[in-house]
Structure formats: structure tokens, C-alpha cells
Amino acid sequence: MAKLKPTLTLMEMEDEMGYKVDALDRPDEAEKRFYSDLTPVPDNTYGLTEKDYQEFVKRKHDKNSGKAADICYGVGFNLPLLLTEAEVVRTFSVAKLLRETTPSVNRGFFDLPREIRDKIYIFAIPRGEWRITNIDKFEQDNLIRGIGDPSGFYYPLSKSLVVLRVNKQMRLEALPFAYRRTTFIWDDLDDVIKFLVAIGQVGRDNIESLQFPWESRTDMEFTWEGFLDSELPWRLPVLHASECVQLLRRCKRLKHLRLCFEEDLILSMQPDAFMADSGIGELCSIQGITQLEIWDLGNSSLEHCRIAKLLREKIEGAKEEETGHESIYSLIFKYIKRLGAVS
């Protein structure tokens, strides 16, 4: 039988690290903060020390004090983070690169009309799928770098697309087409949040196809604590569902969305309870989706289920309602314009 790892006391962790957490410059705010892996920052000294100790053992850093960083995109989206010193350094290193970024315009290819160049980019970028292969490396580098590069210019989308590596001007022009012609597939809702932050403005403005499960590892870990494995209740994510929806709303060209759910949850949950969930309610407000697919985690369609049909009806209904509002506003504008012309 395997032995349990001994739990260290607060003093033992402090002695090994060489400092006390509560002596560091921690943000003293009522608002809940999260680490870069989107796990909540503990609200007690032992929890804070334990997290720093884990980071200390993992990376063998000296002092690894926290620095507050708020990510805000207009109204609605706000992700308050607590970054380590090493993460802050990586963030500023990318921000410094950005200040030195100027499009390099060369003669020859760039003398062609922009419409012709765009057609060439489409031929040069094949349609494909993009999956994460090393989640640990992604979590360590890309979100932190993305915070320092809000434009998304430096996001390492694909090394195989040579057209993105010719020069800065070509990358600037071709990058939108790379997002439009790629289907992005993820295994966790939290990873989608990190990805949509990391790809910056150019990525969110151009991504058209996205697939991921409506399920969060972080949510499972922190809200199912205390249950035995056999007693874990199937439930919808709560912790970061709203942040995910807010980012999806900023994907202006998003047309195809495949959401995956645990089949037992879909079959056992009452439709009214499912639709009353706050995250699902926000999800139904997303506009512009023309192809919504509901699948289980085993890559089988759940389109026959009542809940899947309800979800599609709500999203399509929201789209029709928005279109109706736009028509009404257009008529009002024309009427006012006509009155102005008469007067």
C-alpha cells in the first residue's frame, strides 16, 4: 500500500523557502483572484504558503512573490490574476517585443493589390484542425505571453505555416486567414479561456470554428471536494463559465461551435434545471452561431436529446431576436433621417 505524502506545517514550508508569505506584497482585495492555471487564490495564509511552496519545489525559484494582474476587455469580462515574479518577467518581455514591432514593407509581392494578396494567403493556408499536444507547456508559456501581447501578433499559432514566418508584414496580413481556416479543439473549458486570452485581438476577431467540452477540471477540483469518487454528482461548471462566455462573445466571426457534455448529465438532468443554470443562460445569449453541435465526451452526437434541442432553439432564437432588433433600429433611424430631411 502506498504511503501518503506527509503534510508540512506552515513553519516547515517557510523555513525551506526562506521567507514568509504574509510578509510579501500580496494584493489585499475583497475580489477573488486566480493563479495563471485559473485555480482560485486561497484566502488563508496556509493555503497561500502551500501554493508558493509547490512552485518553489517545482521550479527551484528563490522568492516567488505574487503580483496582481487584471485582464479586462471592455464591459463584462474581468479575470483578476495573481502572477509569480517569473510570470511577470515573461509578460514584460513580450510587451517589450511589441514596442519594437513595425510592419516591414518590401517591394515585389507587396506591390500586388491587397485583394490579390488575400487570395494568395487563402491558397497558401489549408483548412485544418489545431489541438494542444503539451498542456503543461501551454499553461506555462502561452497565457502569460498573451497577457503581454494583447494584439495576438506573436502567438505561436503554427510552425508549419511558412507564410506566417516570412516577415512581419506578411504575418500581419495572413494571420487572420490562419484563424478562419482552422478548427480549434480543446479538452477543457479552462483551457479555452486561456487560449482565447492568449490569441489576442486578432485571434478572437477571426476564429470561426471551436470545439470543447462544457467541463472544467478546476471546477471539479474545488467544488467537488469532500465527495467520494463514487458519490461525485454530475453537474455543470460554475467557477469560470461566465468568463468563457464573455470571451466567446468577443469572437466576432465564430460560426461553428461544438459543445461536449457528459452523457449521464444530459440524460439524467431535468431540462428546466439545465436551462436555469446561470452558465447555460449566458451561453444562450451568444450571437452569430450558425452551426451548433451537442456531443458527448466520447465524440457521439446528442442531437436526439431534449436538452440538446432546447439549447439549439434558445441560441437560434436569440439570433433571430437580435436580427429583429436590428431591423427595428434600422427603421427608426430611417424615419428620423426622413424627418430631418423634411424639416
Rank of each mutant, 00 (worst) to 15 (best):
Y19A: 11
F333V: 03
A174Y: 01
R26V: 13
T290M: 07
G288H: 06
M269W: 06
P237D: 05
F77M: 04
T183Y: 03
V245D: 01
W130Y: 08
G203V: 03
E243V: 02
T91P: 00
D141G: 01
N206K: 04
E231M: 15
H304D: 06
A308W: 00
D191V: 08
P113H: 10
N78C: 15
D70M: 12
I71E: 04
K58R: 15
Y154C: 06
Y46T: 11
S160L: 09
S216A: 10
R165T: 08
L232G: 08
W295K: 02
R235D: 08
W186L: 08
F109W: 12
R171C: 02
G298T: 10
P40D: 11
G47Y: 14
T45H: 09
F92N: 12
V238W: 07
A69K: 13
P40C: 11
F34D: 04
S268E: 07
H325R: 09
L189D: 01
L292Y: 05
E321D: 09
R217T: 15
I135P: 01
L79K: 00
A318H: 10
D70W: 10
I132G: 04
P233S: 09
K51N: 13
Q140I: 04
L196C: 07
A198R: 00
K63T: 14
P113Q: 12
T49N: 12
G279K: 00
K3F: 12
T45I: 15
A69E: 02
I144Q: 00
F77S: 02
M1P: 10
P40W: 03
R338I: 03
E14N: 13
I280L: 05
Y329R: 11
G76W: 02
R249V: 01
P40V: 08
V162T: 13
I294P: 01
G148S: 06
R235T: 11
G317S: 09
F56D: 09
F123Y: 14
T7F: 12
V202G: 01
F153G: 02
D43A: 14
L112T: 08
E139G: 04
R117E: 06
G146E: 02
T91N: 08
L259S: 01
C305R: 04
A30R: 12
I315W: 04
K319D: 15
R250P: 01
N44F: 14
D277S: 15
L24K: 05
N106M: 13
S268Q: 09
D149V: 06
G47L: 12
Y335F: 11
A69S: 09
E321C: 07
V192T: 04
E31L: 11
K63D: 10
T102N: 11
E55M: 12
H325T: 04
E29Q: 14
L302D: 03
E139D: 12
